[in-house]
Design a protein around this nucleic acid. Structure first.
Length: 647
RNA sequence: GCCGGAUUAGCUCAGCUGGUAGAGCGGCUGAUUUGUAAUCAGUAGGUCGGGGGUUCGAGUCCCUCAUCCGGCACCA
């Protein structure tokens, strides 16, 4: 307003195309857009000032590199989602007076807002809220940023009954400006940035679900009501996302597990799996593969008891740290616990006899069935169960061997993931937590060794600061599946503590007793969970070598029955998992049925094949058929059946 | 464990404000002998998740428990 009074100063704005515009007054992104032409006014959503996303209406008061953010900017959709959260909050407060707002960020694929309200929201409320949101978009309410005095802001929010907001302001760092966004009549504390008006949000959004969520993510706090939504720059993108969700639902392992007759779950054994013949075949095939890989890497396999007396768990520290997750059983005067982990058992085997440094590294593997009393709300199909079998192993080694053992492990793990069809692996490196055992020198050594090994293995790691186990640092291996979801499966943990507690030692070159280091490691994590991931990753279409039923021999008419039986015998003799389908049905029917059951290969035989001693190979999902001599087909399928890394 | 929703035939689901259960697929039986994603006809099948209550009467309303689903917390 008093621009004339301020000293004439030139502000130069550098644009992405290299042009520089000079202004003698503070300029906003909106001004800039107007100067660039009407097209820009229409498409500009926000500005980047020296890389940082800002409001279109924020005055730029110093020289800067500025670009206008349009819908195709990767940051734009985040802005949009954040706005969607605010528009939803306005809608909710308009519809349900007395509801308090708390926080409402943009998240991957969408947004949410947490509300405090006595009455619960129900799914029926969502269409109503959505309707109101569209109304707010149509109102084209301007969104304006204001900076308030901290105490005034606290007072204001308290006076209108927004106690959570007041609490947020009280906890903000003292130097943080308190920015408030006015959106029409509505007002919210927010860091921003935001679009210039609600109309900019568009209508490519949808409210998805209601859920409970704890204030500040702490289960001791009040539970708020969260509404999740998704928002996109265009209707087309929204539809694509919704279609993707439908696809994900179709590959849900619980659904496919039933459709493919692999396993079931039932309430009398919540969190435990009933494996059906086909599912168990898949399980055993995977296990045989793992066993082969481990043996080739110099692991020895052991088996340790399910029920172990509490005194051992007291010594290992589990009784103190893990008690509430352990199932117990009474026997006469004793209390036994079902093992939640295999490590203490493995130390018992290590302790038998005297170990020499020459025995190290000792790689002790067990397909150990563990039980953990997971909270009921955590159970989820095969992914989160109470009874599971780990592909567990403990490597007893010297400190000097940590690097080479880790390196070898990383190589093995990557090779196995590749074999199983996963190519994207992210490694998280969790270093020392605040509460920890062992000296800083020991931690330096352990972290250094791990880091060195991951570098040698050519793995990029993402630091997870302070997230290590109390006994040592760990690596976590996260797989990305076919539709972009992440699964944390493998792990490697360095442990200096358990060998100490359970008194494991070996005799060194010097003739003295030493403590070995234990590396806890798993690749699949658990068979249950991994099979769940495998099913979803492949959408049930497992690779030939893993498919529980690999081949169905289907007849055209029952004239070919005898020949089909002969083909079956030949397949089985070659070790291929096969069945016949001699039913009196049309071949169309059989093809459809076995395709839906995801059988990878269908061998169709009719009068012609019988006469010529051939089979017609039909691959799952393919249209083409290949007619070859029976012997040739068997040879081909036998090769495929061997699986990767078989030689 | 917490919040919300759900639980009806083997599966997917319908069943309005209370009046003693329905469809499609699948199963079974029969006919059909068929060349690459559903041949036709007939037929059986349910203590409506368990328990309690309200009512002349409950799949439907209320209470309670269990399990499942979606989140949250948890995942040493």
């Amino acid at each position: 307003m008093d621009q004339a009074a301020s000293a004439p100063q030139t502000i130069s704005i550098r644009l992405p195309d290299g042009r520089t515009l000079a202004y003698d007054h503070p300029v906003t992104g909106a001004d800039l857009a107007a100067d660039l032409g009407p097209h820009w006014t229409r498409v500009a959503l926000a500005v980047r000032v020296d890389g940082a996303m800002k409001d279109l209406l924020l005055p730029i008061e110093a020289d800067a590199t500025v670009s206008l953010v349009t819908a195709d900017d990767p940051g734009a959709v985040e802005l949009l989602r954040h706005d969607a959260a605010h528009v939803m909050a306005e809608a909710v407060q308009e519809l349900y007076p007395g509801t308090q707002v708390t926080i409402g960020p943009a998240i991957e694929n969408g947004f949410y807002y947490d509300f405090a309200r006595t009455e619960p929201f129900t799914p029926e409320d969502l269409p109503r809220i959505e309707e109101k949101m569209r109304e707010i978009v149509d109102r084209d309410e301007p969104i304006r940023r204001e900076v308030w005095d901290r105490d005034a802001a606290i007072l204001h929010f308290k006076s209108i009954g927004e106690h959570y907001k007041a609490e947020i302001i009280e906890d903000l760092p003292a130097d943080e400006p308190i920015s408030v966004y006015r959106q029409g009549e509505w007002l919210d504390l927010c860091r921003g940035p935001h679009l210039a008006s609600t109309a900019r949000l568009g209508k490519a959004f949808k409210l998805m679900k209601v859920a409970g969520a704890y204030w500040r993510g702490d289960s001791r706090n009040a539970q708020l009501q969260r509404i999740y939504g998704t928002a996109w720059a265009s209707k087309k993108q929204l539809d694509a996302y919704l279609t993707m969700l439908e696809e994900a639902e179709k590959r849900d392992h619980r659904r496919l597990g039933r459709e493919m007759n692999l396993f079931h779950l039932q309430e009398e054994a919540a969190g435990a799996v009933f494996w059906h013949p086909l599912g168990w075949t898949l399980y055993r095939t995977l296990q045989a593969y793992m066993r082969r890989r481990l043996e080739a890497e110099g692991y020895v396999e052991v088996n340790t008891p399910q029920l172990i007396d509490r005194t051992l768990w007291e010594r290992s520290g589990h009784w103190e740290k893990f008690r509430e997750h352990m199932f117990t059983a009474a026997a006469e005067e004793k209390i036994l616990a079902l093992k939640p982990m295999n490590c203490p058992g493995h130390v018992q085997i290590f302790r038998q006899g005297i170990k020499s440094y020459r025995d190290l590294p000792l790689r002790m593997a067990e397909f150990g069935c563990c039980h953990r009393n997971e909270p009921s709300g955590a159970l989820h199909g095969l992914m989160r169960v109470r009874a599971f079998t780990q592909d567990d192993a403990h490597i007893f080694c010297t400190e000097d061997q940590i690097t080479s053992e880790t390196l070898a492990f990383c190589d093995l793990l990557q090779s196995i993931y590749r074999d199983l069809g996963f190519t994207e692996v992210v490694v998280k490196f969790s270093d020392r937590p605040a509460k920890r055992a062992g000296s800083d020198a020991t931690w330096d050594k352990a972290e250094g060794a791990l880091r060195e090994a991951t570098e040698a293995a050519g793995l990029e790691t993402k630091l997870n600061p302070g997230e290590g186990a109390f006994y040592g640092p760990k690596l976590e291996f996260v797989l990305r599946d076919a539709i972009g979801r992440d699964w944390q499966l493998g792990t490697l943990q360095v442990d200096f503590v358990l060998p100490e507690r359970l008194e494991a030692n070996y005799v060194g070159e010097d003739g003295e007793k030493h403590r070995p280091v234990m590396l806890h490691r798993a690749i699949l994590g658990s068979f249950e969970r991994f099979i769940g991931v495998l099913i979803e990753h492949h959408a049930g279409r497992l690779p030939f070598w893993l498919a529980p039923l690999q081949v169905v021999v289907a007849t055209i008419t029952n004239q070919a029955d005898a020949y089909a039986v002969q083909v079956l015998a030949a397949l089985r003799a070659a070790g291929i998992r096969a069945e016949t389908d001699l039913r009196n049905e049309k071949i169309n029917f059989k093809v459809r049925e076995h395709s839906l059951a995801k059988v990878p290969v269908l061998l169709v035989v009719g009068a012609r094949e019988q006469e010529e001693g051939t089979v017609a190979i039909r691959r799952l999902g393919g249209k083409a058929q290949e007619v070859v001599a029976l012997a040739e087909a068997i040879a081909k399928l036998t090769m495929e059946s061997l699986g990767p890394s078989a030689t």
